[in-house]
Design a protein around this nucleic acid. Structure first.
Lengths: 204, 204, 204, 204
DNA sequence: TATGAATGAGCGTTCATTCAT
DNA sequence: CATGAATGAACGCTCATTCAT
């Protein structure tokens, strides 16, 4: 009231920063322990705050999970945007595969992605969020496929888009499982395989 | 000791049957609730026995999870065997996709598969088991690719096998995620996509 | 199964005994600390068991409260039955007042009665239970008023019953508050006052 | 110190106003949620101030409860004063009963009264406060009973006062419980009952 | 004076595991 | 062999209270 505007903005900024701190900590904990095994105390410790404080910024544990899903959607959107910029889809996918294999708790985790998807079969809220996220992702991929080559797209015909997107997604998401189940699979092998089979998917 | 030979064999058979009862119940519970949310009481109820009795046949909950992984290996082997028998790989994969989408607690579950794989990044024992299982699976698939056409194989050259197996696995496992994240994807669409892209993978 | 009937009956008896142990402990704790301030750990300690065990016999804390209400109803029924037997209503009420003033955690507590009634304005389940209990109590009292003198009743006319029951209840329940707020009020003073004003209530 | 006299008086007045704001808010919250279930955050919100500020005016939650008791004493004194003014005691009591049944959070609440009394059996400070309050109330009622009819009193003899006050209080406080446990009891029924039994209490 | 972010202890509850029967 | 009562540690979460701003 005394200094209008500013203090509120400052407080809002702090709140956002705190939410971010919590989400980063939660992501690490979820990657390391899994959704259910990671405790709020775990997350609080990792975030360097008391457990109770988390509830000022999130309604509960489930709320954190949903926020993490949205984070992943935004990261995915950013990745898609990069696809537009680069002509080298193979290198992009291979890089993501490398990150998944390294299992760095700070970036998108393959394990988290799998567990999240599995959880969608049990939690209605999570199901809604993941399916919505997935729809957006497919739509973005589809736009890229269908756009004219002159505009940075692939110029694929409309009746082919769904099929191509499906296969491409299977390849990418399948690599998430390979990153875990086949730790001795090298990035180069992945590149080589993709170089051999992706072109037929990407040509009009 | 008192009645040697026969009774022991009988007891061992009973023990195996009990383990099987428990595993079947556990699989159902895990599919429905997930590994961590499924309680031992749940499993005991489903198996129609007391909670305490389970500990005569398994060291603990983790021990059951490990056994479930081995069960899945067996089932995977059976699936591979069916691939040999059928000439129609596309129909086979599409059928599995349909089962995954239906999420029948009695057959291999996509969600369980994902959760299990995710868990492998956290539990060393599970990692070892899943990777061993995966190696066997790849080996069986590889054999089929490399075997002569006359012997029911595909006659693919040795230096192409790893690549082909990799792509095929990505497609199959990618469909596990599609079954969950894209519930409106029809079996026919999957068949159509596979029919378009599998041939290039399966020809020598 | 092996020894049918008996074991189940034994188990049921034990379960009932455990429920009773818990209810007795809960009543003590509720009297001493109040409904909300009494913790499940408190009750478990008082009952001489672990906190977790309580949940085998009660759904939760609210379930215990509801069971205590029913207990009180049964005790009230027993008290009413005694009224039938004795011609000395004044002595009976005065005795109850004495127990209330002593605040013995083992018998019906005035404080518990008040808190329970207050809670009924907030918890729908408790409201339903207390009102049902109250209806039964009033009905029993009314029967006694209306019954012929020859049958141990008071022979009060039908159109007078509701009024008489109302006043009598106010006097009894009012004494519950007096027992707390006026600790120096003697049982004899209560008797004297009741002897002076009850007769007009009890004559046809 | 810097501006002696006046500013201090102003500050004291402000402090009293703040205390009043808090007490009004607390009373509302206590009526709705009960003493223990009402949170300091609740009270702060209702009072339109921050939670921390309350601690400048009250030592803690218990301190607020004690202050509320004193408030009720003030209200009770006011009610007694009204009894003096009206010749119709029955109508006055019936009106209070109606307010109790309506459970208006802005006036004296029956539920709060009961909970407060119950709490007196547990908290020594509350016991002292309620008993002192009760003594004053009885004294005021007694004065009215004993005062000469010519002075607006009832002219009851000294040795009858205690008994009459006791019965009258039981009737009034008993109606507090009736208001909760017998929600279908009408104000008219109460009036009718009081009209029948009060006269014998009020005549010399 | 006033705020509200932060703490930390304690809550009700669940559940893997043990063991007397 | 089989039971299920019992434990105890941990969980997610709430809230009275404090204190830097």
């Amino acid at each position: 009231m005394s200094t209008p505007g500013k203090p509120t903005a400052k407080a809002a900024a702090r709140a956002l920063a705190q939410r971010e701190r919590i989400l980063v900590a939660a992501q690490k904990c979820f990657v390391v322990h899994g959704f259910h095994a990671a405790s709020m105390a775990n997350i609080a410790d990792t975030a360097g705050m008391s457990a109770g404080l988390i509830y000022r910024y999130f309604k509960g544990k489930n709320d954190i999970i949903l926020a993490i899903i949205e984070r992943q959607l935004e990261e995915a959107r950013a990745d898609i945007a990069k696809l537009h910029a680069t002509s080298d889809l193979v290198a992009g996918i291979a890089e993501v595969f490398g990150q998944w294999q390294a299992n760095d708790p700070n970036v998108t985790s393959a394990a988290l992605f799998l567990e999240l998807t599995a959880e969608a079969t049990r939690d209605e809220e999570i199901a809604v969020a993941t399916q919505a996220s997935d729809r957006v992702f497919r739509s973005l991929l589809g736009d890229w496929f269908v756009r004219a080559v002159a505009d940075g797209g692939l110029g694929v015909s409309q009746d082919q888009v769904a099929t191509r997107v499906l296969i491409l997604q299977c390849l990418i998401e399948g690599l998430a499982m390979r990153a875990i189940s086949q730790p001795d699979l090298s990035v180069d092998q992945v590149k080589s395989a993709l170089n051999q089979f992706l072109p037929s998917l990407l040509t009009a």
